[in-house]
Amino acid sequence: MVAALSMDIIAASVLPVRSEPVVTDGEVDRELVRQARAGELSAYDDLVRKYQERVYATIYHMTGNHEDASDLAQESFVKAWQALKSFKGDSSFYTWVYRIAVNRTINFLKQRRNRTPHFSLNDLDFSGENDPDLVALVSQNTPRREVGLIELQTRLNEAIQKLSEEHRMVVTMHDIQGIPHDEIAAVMNCNPGTVRSRLHYARQQLQAWLADWVR
């Protein structure tokens, strides 16, 4: 014990203390943004790879359609590249690109309002069968698990699509993606209090529409 301690002391005195700079996520992003603004597409490629899943998921849950989500996510990143010169760095790149995606999605949904949304669940890799929570939930409601899951998913998507764009966005970002209130407020350019009240209202609506499943 004493020997081990003394060895540590010796090592500490002999070996120089390596002061590795702690690079935070924000600093990495800032550096990538700086390089991308200088025209380096490889840096922007890294940024896209970093946030593609989150941006896609948000758009997908808003539109309920894989093709639309794919197109909108792609457009959002292209638009972000074109507007990169106007990015002042007041917020994080993630918040900024998210805001672009959210605005484009809301515009798209407003244009699509007269059309019936087409859910493309078949295109998605749905692996809910193994979730114990879901298995319990479905077995309570229907005798056949597979049929019950599909029906439940369809009902859930229909209910989410009934919400207004703003309420749907809040539910998607908070309840599905787990983004905190203040970040949602930054993305949606409103107060955290507004986010909370929208969230509460949206949940009430969803609970009423899905009363058969939510007990």
Binding site: A57, A69, D131, Q153, L210
Partner: peptide, 16 residues
């Protein structure tokens, strides 16, 4: 109950 339902949405991911 709604929280458990939302788990279902998280399972929806694009094709591999």
């Amino acid at each position: 109950g709604l929280r458990r339902l939302m788990v279902l949405k998280r399972r929806e991911i694009p094709p591999p």
